[in-house]
Amino acid sequence: MDYRFLPKKGLSLFVDGLLKDFKVYGPVKMDGFPVYEEVSSAKELLLMHSPSHITPKKYLFPQRETLLRFKTGEKPQVEHAADADNQVLFGIHPCDIHAIRLLDRVFAYGTPDVNYLRRREKTIIIGTECLPDKFCFCRSVNTMTAANDFDLFIHDIGAGFLVKIGTEKGKELLFRHVKTRKATIKEISKLVEFHKKKESMFTASINAEPSTLPLIYSGSYDSPVWEEIGKICYGCGSCNLVCPTCYCFDVRDDISLNMKDGERYRVWDGCLLEDFAKVAGGHNFRKTRGERLRHRFNRKFQFQVDKFGGLFCVGCGRCSRACLVNINIVEITNKLIEERETGKKE
């Protein structure tokens, strides 16, 4: 892999350069918390931040996205909407880089989802490093570092930035806007050191090999855990909506007041919400919160793994962080592991 060294002041030049051709989104502070917003200069960007509440997936799979535009009438007219700008997602953490890799797979699988794929095509991903908080557990699911699936990866090494080249496109952009030089072994080793430090900082971890988790989950269908956490769960869907790999959506129509022009759009949905699996006739296939929690946890550790390969939990801890009743994905998983080991299921 190609590593370059970018002097400290080069970053601002680089971002200015990007801003000429792209919308640039990156982490900024809002009410004291990191969120991804559009930026107009490098000054606004956070170079080291804890995980954002809402994931950067919103730039690839927006909360609300128009799919079709139509005109009603005798002969309705319909056209496909695929509005996508060239964009740079800056400051994407390894967990979210992995999450985007998984979303790429989902939306390309079977019938390709043109809306997502078109946005993705026009997106440049620039990763940055991070340090874990008490909810992060990426180390436990092999997503602590990202080897590829980004265009560039920038790491602050004090005197300047170590820039890992992920794609030709990323390299071309870097070379177009700033002068860099080949990074020295010493500079590269700073990233290795950083990873060592990061690795030692996790307080949350899953007590089993990631590859064993699908099996553990498949054996835990009848665990009492689901009913227990179902009792305290709000069914508010926050865990779904902050998850970087949740991609379920609802499709709705909106029509303007002239009752002629309208659009069909999709919005984020969540399997924890009461009506998610309810059919028009009224039957609800996952009526209890416990069933819905089981479904969500299994989607992360078993169901989607069977379907797409690879765990669908990237260890960002957002769901645990967002849960008001402290349903913690690491604790639940460890509990299931323990139940399996002790064979205890009262």
Binding site: T111, D113, F249, V251, D269, A277, G281, H283
Partner: peptide
Amino acid sequence: LERRMKCGIGKCGH
């Protein structure tokens, strides 16, 4: 089997 469906193409999750 009947289930809620929003996309028909294996994406929406319902």
